[in-house]
Nucleic acid binder design. Structure first.
Lengths: 189, 189
DNA sequence: AAGCTAAATTTCAGAGCTAAAGAGTACACA
DNA sequence: TGTGTACTCTTTAGCTCTGAAATTTAGCTT
């Protein structure tokens, strides 16, 4: 089984055993373990955690939180004019609407977004990216791409293609299936 | 830049665009983006998130939380007699000692661990796995390995080896370096 | 032996999250 | 036109985390 990640905003990594030590410990405590599978799963999990720490450092260097960053990303990727409702944003980010309300509160005071009622339907609210919010996103992207290129610099173009393909295949397998309580993936389509 | 994950315990995924749509949106909004790099990084992040959702479903099916699961794992992997101090546990899990205190409180009432003072040094506290805690961990591992095997079932043994190797290389690159505020990885050794 | 310093853990205050209840608005239908 | 119903967002209560202060014990120094 893989590591479980720290929270979204945690900026440091607990001192953990090396990957080799950890796999050895798993085999000692749980014989029915395929070390090859465990290697993949644990490396995947650790790699992801490290990357999130790196992203967190970058966004905080820009004076925004990791959570603000997520909202900026969703708005930018929605395309001009960079507007969404709180409900849609919440769904996109996998948050409850309540959490979204609070995030928007914060981000409005930080000047990253504006919130106004939709005059054509006063139930709805429109969250819109400000120029400052868009600029922050661009700065964060510049930092992120530098980091990502550095991370992958030792991989040849062929290796990158192969890695991207394999990961995409795995992703499709998880996305098109839902594990039941027993853990088995059952195809949905 | 990759997706940012939901919290450790979030059990559902926000409805998001497909990977292809998302990469297209990135390219539209940020021209200096290598789609190959973005493919890898985004797939990695999404895959990890989906896997965590699956693990969360499994552990909650066993009646334990994802956070309890992390503590059980650290204790089991420490080896018999499955004892650690709160401080060491906190470091291992990347939590503050304060958070550890609360988790241990909870897990003691759940019967997963015991807490007692170290009589040879009364400042220290010893957290020890109970038989029930160990059994819960084993059950969770059985579920997890089924899930992981299913996830990787379409990969040949050669593909698995190659994937494990590449991920381990990437992991080493991140672990042996720390990104500075500018995002660049700088070797430490 | 008394007091000082360091280390480990717990307590406290503040922030963000979830789940559920509440408030406001639009629309359908009599 | 009036009312019910559904939908969207906000509010409230409770939980877990972080960071900092407080507490307890050990070991050293004089």
């Amino acid at each position: 089984m893989a590591d479980t990640p720290g929270g979204p905003g945690s900026l440091h990594i607990g001192s953990e055993p090396t990957l080799e030590e950890q796999i050895a410990a798993y085999q000692r405590e749980f014989q029915d373990l395929d070390p090859q599978v465990e290697q993949i799963v644990s490396a995947l999990s650790r790699l992801n955690r490290r990357m999130n720490v790196a992203y967190g450092r970058q966004t905080s260097a820009l004076g925004i939180s990791n959570t603000d960053w997520e909202v900026l990303k969703a708005l930018v990727l929605s395309g001009a004019p960079y507007r969404m409702g709180p409900g849609e944003l919440a769904k996109r980010l996998g948050l409850t609407p309540a959490a979204m309300t609070h995030r928007i509160d914060r981000m409005v005071t930080e000047g990253l977004v504006t919130r106004e009622r939709d005059e054509s339907n006063r139930v709805r609210v429109i969250v819109e990216l400000t120029a400052e919010g868009r600029e922050k996103w661009l700065e964060a992207m510049r930092l992120a791409t530098v980091f990502e290129e550095d991370l992958l610099q030792d991989l040849s173009s062929e290796e990158r293609t192969a890695l991207g393909d394999v990961l995409t295949r795995l992703l499709r397998r998880v996305e098109h299936a839902q594990p039941d309580a027993g853990g088995r993936l059952s195809d949905l389509d």
